[in-house]
């Protein structure tokens, strides 16, 4: 169970929120010159990192406001919560806990098959 600190209401249970997928995805500014492949990329492709992930949340059972968060998807630890109009924090502000791309972190993962 994750606790999420809504920037407007404070800390609440994750079940009060809905996830909006990757944050900072910008609609192409030149739609007429885009190829099918580029459109496909914009519509269907989203980052899916194991580790630091920028994502959107909406406090659906609360203030109903959207905001952004930085979460480590390998531990579910929320590293930063910020409002939509605030600047995207730099990736170098956060420490990635993973030793290899598919490895397991020391805490947070339930994958006991490969946890040393």
């Amino acid at each position: 169970m994750i606790l999420i600190k809504c920037p407007y209401c404070g800390e609440r249970d994750q079940s009060e929120f809905s996830n909006g997928g990757e944050a900072h995805v910008i609609r192409p500014k030149n739609p007429e010159s885009l190829s099918d492949k580029d459109w496909g990329e914009y519509v269907f492709y989203r980052n899916n990192p194991k580790g630091i992930f920028y994502e959107r949340w909406v406090h659906s059972h609360g203030c109903k406001k959207w905001f952004n968060a930085v979460r480590n998807t390998s531990t579910d630890q929320i590293l930063k919560v910020y409002k939509v109009n605030e600047k995207r924090p730099d990736l170098s502000d956060f420490e990635n806990t993973l030793k290899s791309p598919s490895g397991e972190p020391l805490v947070g993962s339930g994958n006991f098959a490969v946890k040393k």
Partner: peptide
């Protein structure tokens, strides 16, 4: 309802 690589999932 969110991306994650923790092989646990939420109780809700």
């Amino acid at each position: 309802g969110y991306n994650s690589f923790t092989q646990r999932g939420g109780y809700d």
